[in-house]
Design a binder for these strands. Sequence first.
DNA 1: AAAGAATACAACCGCCCCCGT
DNA 2: GACGGGGGCGGTTGTATTCTT
Length: 466
Amino acid sequence: MGRSPCCEKVGLKKGPWTPEEDQKLLAYIEEHGHGSWRALPAKAGLQRCGKSCRLRWTNYLRPDIKRGKFSLQEEQTIIQLHALLGNRWSAIATHLPKRTDNEIKNYWNTHLKKRLTKMGIDPVTHKPKTDALGSGSGNPKDAANLSHMAQWESARLEAEARLVRESKLLVTNNNNNIPQALPHQLGSANTNPAHHFINRAGGAVAPPPCLDVLKAWQGAWTKSSNSNNRAECNTLADMIAMDDLESPTSTLNFPDANPHHSFPNMTHVGGFGTTNTTTTTTTHDIHHHHQNNGVESEHNVNGWKSCYSTTTTPTITKVVNINDHHHHHHDNNSHMVAPPTPPPEFKERNMDTTNTMSLQDIAFACTDGGAWFVDGFRAPGSGGAGDSMAVPAGALSNIMEGFADVFVYNPDEPNSAVAAAGENSSNGGGGGDGSCGASGIFEENKSYWNSILNLVNASPAGSPVF
DNA sequence: AAAGAATACAACCGCCCCCGT
DNA sequence: GACGGGGGCGGTTGTATTCTT
């Protein structure tokens, strides 16, 4: 036998709510709370069933509901979470404050799904459609790149999901974020991906990934939107400046006396076309010591510079004017050779102020075709240590390119978008408008896959994500 | 200007899970 | 442990609005 209906439906009104009905419902809930939904309509004087009242309240009348256009960040979050969670709208909604699952679901069905389809990406699997590879973008090169990304992403998601799960166990076992030893400190034989968290100041906490990655994204978006100049917020400097960075997305916090110290060790791999020199910093998180062909140089995280010797622990000095010191490079006229520089649009990006690292942070593309990899990660064939996470061969360039425009792409301000995937872009650079045309579509694809990398971070403890 | 198509969004429906009894 | 009510969830439909021809 079927279930009995939630309430007696005969004579009950259906369809759109009138302002009067809304007022009655609001007034009643404000005074009494909703209590039992089943009993509410009679008490509130409404000819509706309790379920209808509940839906009207939760999806529309609730005071903490944000209405209106979805921001870029919200869109990205939805897409990312959907890639991981599928149609679990309520789970997705928990990471989009003030948005209801119904609204997100509708937005997905009416906007995002279509847009992904248009980009040649299957909105269900979040992978490029097979036929799209050949004909979707009209550009075989784009399709090939996309295929690489998909291939790599698939393997990666698997590994990272494992990482997240294991990290949770670690955190649990360590009693609420008591600092843990890093793989380097534990011994190098550990190949468990769960140990690949970024080093922190003092070699202390290696927190599990969480939605603080998205927090950083959303913070940047919000900040730049407020200043009406998103382009000003494309670098970590802008994010660092956001001491008031609020997280609407994550409930996890990892205490750190000085979050500005939370930067990774990095290793430069490849570059300069000749010697695949790999030099890893081992001392300071905020300073990236760097050597090519025996010549030393450095990369510094925003706001810091070093007075270093080439062989000893550098002395780190906070730079007063952080905007002047995105990177400190010695030019070719000095005794130093200019190191390969990350394209400006993603220098220092994603090194957030919130004590977490995005998986995107494993690498920064360099103009020489090489890349900076955060400790514990390496490019294929780079011969990294046993505790490195390898990137499948063939994927590196795609990864590098994938780092480009997530932050800066703004469909409302096409000219502000950094469409090309850095100076080593292989698809011809594309136009500045990431919102239309084959090139634009490809840029969106890169951004898309890039952003999915963050998904494995997107599981605050206790969330329904995993 | 009007009709039809497309889009956007609110609301409904039915299934399922949780929890109290 | 079984049962039933309440509420959550995801899929779908209905309707208003906007766009296109």
